[in-house]
Design a protein around this nucleic acid. Sequence first.
RNA 1: GCCGACCUAGUCCAACUGGCAGAGACAACCCGCUUAAGACGGGUCAAGUGAGGGUUCGAAUCCCUCGGUCGGCACCA
Length: 815
Amino acid sequence: MAVKNMPRERIEKYVPRPIEDKWANEWARTGLHETPNELPGKPNFYFLTMYPYPSGQVHVGHWYATAPADCAARFLRMRGNNVLFPMGFDAFGLPAENAAIRNKMHPAEWTESNMAHMRSQFRAMGAMIDWRREVVTCYPEYYRWNQWLFLKLLENGLAYRANAPVNWCPKDRTVLANEQVIGGRCERCETPVEKRALEQWFFRITKYADELLSFEGIDWPERVRVMQTNWIGRSEGAEMAFPVEGHEGAEIRFFTTRPDTVFGATFVVLAPEHPLVAKITAPDRREVVEAYVERAARESEIERSAEGADKTGVATGAYARNVFTDELVPIWIADYVLASYGTGAIMAVPGHDERDFAFAQKYGLDIREVISPDGTEHASLAEPYMGEGVMVRSGELTGRRSEDGKRAVAEEAKRSAIGGPSVTYRLRDWLISRQRYWGTPIPIVYCDRCGTVPVPYEHLPVVLPRDAEFTVEGGNPLAKVDAFVRTTCPNCAGPARRETDTMDTFVDSSWYMYRYLDPKIATAFMDKEIGRKWLPVSQYTGGIEHAILHLLYMRFVCKALRDLGELWFDEPALRLQNQGMIVFDSRKMSKSRGNVVGPDEYVARYGADTLRMFTMFMGPWTQGADWDSAGIDGVSRFLHGVWRLALSARVPGERDEALERDIHRAVQKVTTDIEHYHFNTAVAALMVLRSRLAESAGPTRDEGIRTLLLLLAPFAPFIAEELWARRGGTYSVHTQPWPTYDPDIAKAEEVVLVVQVDGKVRDRLTVAAGVSEDAARSAALASEKVQERLRGREVVKVIVVPGRLVSIVTRPAAG
RNA sequence: GCCGACCUAGUCCAACUGGCAGAGACAACCCGCUUAAGACGGGUCAAGUGAGGGUUCGAAUCCCUCGGUCGGCACCA
C-alpha cells in the first residue's frame, strides 16, 4: 500500500490525562455544563439518570450507567435541545450507619467525604452534569420535603399507621418493605427475614393499583411493564362468606378467582394469624391449634418454604356452612394460606386447586369434582383439574360452562348478600417506617392526651439530631437521643414523644427529579414555574434492578401529588431506557463480595475517554455485560488513531465521492444508533470512518476529520475538544450542531445483486442502486451462468428483492 | 413450578420488514519499527448461527420440541 511506504510523520503522542484535566477545568470555568431553564429557539429536554448511593467510589457500574447516558444527553444537546442532565446523591441509608459503627465516624461525615470523592470522579468522567442543581437527600433542605410529602399524604388519607405483621431483618434490626425481601431474605444482608407485629407507617399505594397497571402515554420497556404488572398482580374473582356454625354472626370471608368451583369447597382454611382463629377453635382443639399458631409465627418464610410442597395444618374443630351446597365443612388453619393476601382465608376446592388437593390428600379431606372438561362426571380425581369446563354436581348450575358459572355464582353471592364480584391485588401498601437513624425523621408526635399528632408544616423540618450513639448491638440510635425524643405536643403543649422511626430511602428517590429543577427553593418542594418548562422527564435511564421498587414508587408519588394538585401530569417520565447490569465473573458486583472493579486505575492508564467508550463498546447497553478489560486496548488504539489522523498533515488530492458517501453513512449510522441506544455499533461505525479517513486524501478527508470529531464528541468529549481546538475550531465542540447526512448520498450507487437459482447462488451482478424490479429480473435471466442452469428447465417463479437479490425457482421442463 | 430474555469465529459482539452469515474489537499468527522486549503501526486467520424438526423460492431471524445461561415471580387462593 502506498501509505505504508511513506516516511512516518512525527506527531506528538496522545497523552490523555493532562488534556482531560485541562478541559475539565475549562468546562467548569466557562460553565459549559450549566443548563439555563430556557434557551431561545431550543426545546427543553430533561435527561434524567438514576442518582447513586454515595458508597465512596464511582465504580465501573456507575460508569456503565452514566457514560452512555451522558453520551446520549450530549448528542441531544448537539441536535439542538436545551438538555438538563443533573446528578445528586441518594445520601440516606444503612451503609452509612454501619460504617459509623465500624469506623467510629459519623454517618454525615462518612457520606460527605464519599460525595466529595465521587463528585471529583464524575468530573473526571467528563459527564455534562449541572452541579448547581445537585440534590443531596440527607440535607434538611431536601428531607423537609419528604416530611411535607408525608404530612400531605396523611392529610389526604394516603398515609396511615397500622399494626401489621411486617418483615423484620434481625441483623439490620429494621423493618423491610415487601419489595426489599428477596426470596425470604433481607435484600441487603441476606439474613432470613422474620415476621413481627409492629405499629408502622404505610403509604396507600394500593389505592393506585389499577392506574399503575396502565402505561398509557409512556414509552417504557416491555420488560419493566411486565414486571410491574406481575408485581401488582391483579386478580378478578369474587369475595364470599360462609357463616361459622354455632357462632352467631361469625363468618369466614374469603376471596376466590374461581367462584364457579364453590360447590366443590369441601373445607375452609384460615391463615394461622387470622383473627377468628382464637374465637372459633373448639375447646378440645385449643392446645393443638395454639401450638401450631405459635410455631408458624416463629418460623421464617425460608423455613416455611423449605418444607416445600408438604403442607401442614390443623383442624380447629369448628365448621362453616357452604351456603351453596348447604353442607357443613370443616375449618382448618394452615400456613399455606397467607394472612396478608385477600382476606387471609380461602374456600378450599381440592378438586380444582393443586394446593388444596395436596392438603386434602394429606389429611383425608373430601375431594369432589365439580368442573369436568367434557361434562361427564368422574368418580374420583387422580389429580386436580384446573382448566375450564362444564360444571357438574353443582346444583342448579350443573351443565353450565365454568366461564359463565363464575359470573353466575358471584351474582348469586351478591343477591344473597354474602359477597359479590371482587378484585384483589398482590400489591401491598408501602411500608415506610425504618427503625434506623440515618434517614428522614417521620414528622409525628405522640401525646398522652392528644394521641398521634402530625408536626405542623411550619415546624418543618424535624431535624435529625447529630449526636447519637452507634453501637454494634444496634437498635435505633435515634430512640436513645433524649433531646430529640422528648418534645411538647403541638396541640396542647403538654409533654410528648417524637416518632423515632425514619423513612425508607425510597421515599427520597420517589420525587428527587422535581427537586433538581431548583434544589434551593425553600417555599415548596419544587419551583412549579421552572417545573412547567421541564416536566415530565423526557428520558429516564437506569439499572434494570430498579424495575419494580423505585420505578413503581416514583409513579405512585407522581399520581398522588397530581391528585393533591401539586403536579399536572400523570406519569413522571415519558420514556424509560434500562441498561443491563454489569457483572464480574458472572456475579453481581458488590462490596460484600469484594469484586468491585474500580475505574480509577483505568482512567489513570488509558484516560477517561477510553474508559467511556469502552463501557459503550462492550455490547448492547440494555443487555449488560460481564466486565472484562481485555478489549479496552482496542478502544485506546482507536483514540490514538484519531489523534494521529486529526493532527496529520494535509494530503493533497481530489474530491473523493466514495469517501463522501462513507462519511454520510457514518453520520447516519451513528445518529440512528445513539437514538436507539446502540452505542456499541455506533462506536464500531466511528472506527470504520477513522480507518477510511486514514487512507484517504484531499479536501474530502479534511471534511471527514471534522465530521469525525463532531461525531466523536459525545463519546469521548475530552479528546474531541482538544483536537477540535487544535484544528482551529471555535469553542466548544460540544455546542456545535450535530452533523447532518443526506440519505441519497449515503445510499450506494451500485449494488451487487445476487442471483439464485433454486436457492443456490449462481451469479452476482453489479447494477445501479435504483434499478427497477423488471430490469433486475431481466438482467438476472440474461446472465450466462443463469442461462446455463435454466437449460432443460422451466421457470416457475422469479422473486425480486430490490437492491438485494433475484431468486429464480424452476422445475424440469414438461415433455 | 410459572413468566421472560438470551445462545453466531478461541472470546466480546454485528447482521433492516426473513434475502450473499461479518460491521467493529480482543486473542492468536505474520510483517514493519526496535539493540531487544514491550508499546506502537500494518496485515492474516477464523463460525454456517445450542440440538432436532417445521413453514418458505429462501431462516441466525418466524413456529414447535428439547438442552443450556441469566433475570423476574414463587403456596397470591
